[in-house]
Amino acid sequence: MPRTTRTQRSTYRLLSALAVLTMTAGAATACGDNDSAPEHAASSSATLSTSPGASQSGVSKLHMVTHDGHRLAFHVTQGNGHTIVLDSGGGEDSSQWKDLVPKLHADTGATVITYDRAGLGKSDVVPGPWKVDSAVSDLKSGLEQLGVTKNVTLVSHSQAGEIASYLAKDNPKMFSGAVLVDANLPPFFTDEEIPRLLAASQPQVDEAKKDPDKPENRQIISTAEGFALAHKAFHEVTWPDAVPATVMVSEKTPLDGSPVDAQRWRDAAASFAQDGPNRTLVTAKGSSHEVPKDRPDLVLKEIEDMAATQH
């Protein structure tokens, strides 16, 4: 299967000015970009090594874990002490972070973990609608199988903000802090906004249904199913006060073509940052929604700052 480049994914994902629906669904193939990452060596053991020399190599190793009948790929650069988990945006696999991982590891000495959500990268495809509770369960189970249950700095881009919100709400003791990178946040998905997103994205959903077996179309269709009900519920989710959070919002937002919706996206980030203690709002100047690509320097700084203050 041919690879889909990051530029192609971003273009497809943002065909519509209001395509948060397809942005959260993603538009990557199940093959992903990880097949081009030779540094990912296979590991037969799920539990992470704690040997003193493990942190010196800086080599990312592939750990395949099994949860709920499917396999998930976790890529681990072993360090000492704390753990930084990077969760990719919709349609992106773990390769979204490939340039940041070695820098984070070198600068912090932390164990750095990326992973491929079901249907992306090296992880198995799971048929049916995309369900945030399944994604949450996958990430939690994978981390637990790797022996990671506390002292985690969670970094979440775009759709991963939904996973982060539910995971942190139910497991606050697992996390020492979070960096939410232009992430989906509960305040944005109001009863007024959800129908706008659905209406704007419907032509893309209809087109995708003409070729439902195509991987990127499968991603769009799976997220469209039950979108309204799921995001009404997401709107009510509260972030735990015990988990500090840096809220990064892009200057252009994923809704740059619609000033009204773009402002609502910014307002939601500001509201989220103001609604609890230990939350900081940071604007990624000059950045599109693809903040990790456009402003890797800023993302790196905010992750390192969060990790340093919590450990």
Rank of each mutant, 00 (worst) to 15 (best):
I221F: 10
A110W: 06
A183D: 07
S137I: 00
S51V: 11
A160M: 08
T149R: 10
T280E: 11
P212R: 14
E290L: 11
T246C: 02
D87I: 08
P244Q: 04
S134W: 14
I303F: 13
R13H: 05
V126G: 02
R71K: 12
D267A: 15
H67V: 08
G177D: 08
T283Q: 14
A262T: 01
V181E: 13
F189C: 01
H63N: 11
E144F: 07
L139A: 08
L197D: 02
A19H: 06
A41N: 04
K122H: 15
V299G: 07
L255K: 01
N171Y: 08
R264T: 13
D68K: 14
S10D: 10
A168R: 02
Y12M: 02
F175H: 03
S141D: 14
D191F: 00
V65W: 03
F272R: 03
T114F: 14
G81D: 13
A110R: 05
K140F: 03
A268E: 09
F189R: 00
K301W: 00
A42M: 07
R3I: 13
S36I: 05
T114D: 04
L86Q: 09
H40S: 04
T283I: 04
K61L: 12
S36G: 11
S137C: 00
A160K: 04
I194W: 00
M1Y: 08
N217G: 01
V299I: 07
G142R: 07
G121N: 09
V205Y: 13
Q310C: 13
A308Y: 03
H75G: 11
S288Q: 08
S36W: 05
S94M: 09
T77I: 09
D124T: 05
T280K: 15
G161Y: 05
D107L: 14
I163T: 13
T283V: 09
S43T: 12
Q310P: 12
S201W: 07
D211P: 03
I221S: 10
R6L: 10
N184Q: 12
G69E: 04
A25G: 15
T50V: 12
L197M: 14
R279F: 06
H105V: 04
A270Q: 13
P277T: 15
E162G: 12
H67S: 14
P244I: 06
L86C: 12
Q263W: 09
A208Q: 07
G32L: 01
K210A: 14
A200Y: 04
T47I: 15
V132D: 04
E236Q: 01
T309P: 01
P254T: 03
T190C: 02
P292V: 10
G58Y: 11
A262E: 01
D211S: 10
G226H: 01
